[in-house]
């Protein structure tokens, strides 16, 4: 298998571990960390495909993705702080007002 393929498979595995984290973690920050994993898996994908096709596009997109992800994490953490302050705990299972 080529190294591109190997990297893709690695990214897939990292992504699924991130999915597991998102679905399993109770603490809001823990979820954000898992989301980070997923974002990075995507970045590896982008770079791998960029390597496959040549040209700067893959890496450009990866850079954009990094910038956006960092911004998202920052905002997310701010929201987590607000959540923790409002309901006295960072447990996402406590946020159930929209329950049907």
């Amino acid at each position: 298998m080529s190294d591109v393929q190997a990297c893709l498979l690695l990214a897939a595995a990292m992504f699924s571990i991130g999915v597991y984290g998102v679905l399993t973690r109770r603490n809001a920050i823990g979820i954000l960390l898992a989301v980070e994993l997923m974002a990075n898996a995507v970045n590896i994908n982008l770079v791998a495909f960029g390597r496959l096709h040549g040209g700067p596009t893959g890496q450009i997109f990866a850079l954009f993705a990094i910038a956006l992800t960092v911004a998202e994490v920052a905002l997310g953490l701010a929201l987590v702080l607000l959540l923790a302050r409002t309901q006295r705990t960072a447990d996402v299972d406590e946020a159930r007002l929209l329950r049907g």
Binding site: I17, V19, Y20, L23, T24, R25, R26, N27
Partner: peptide, 14 residues
């Protein structure tokens, strides 16, 4: 605290 719930479902989904 960090107890997690729904481990099996999460694992299966992952």
């Amino acid at each position: 605290r960090q107890e997690s719930r729904g481990l099996v479902v999460g694992a299966l989904a992952a």
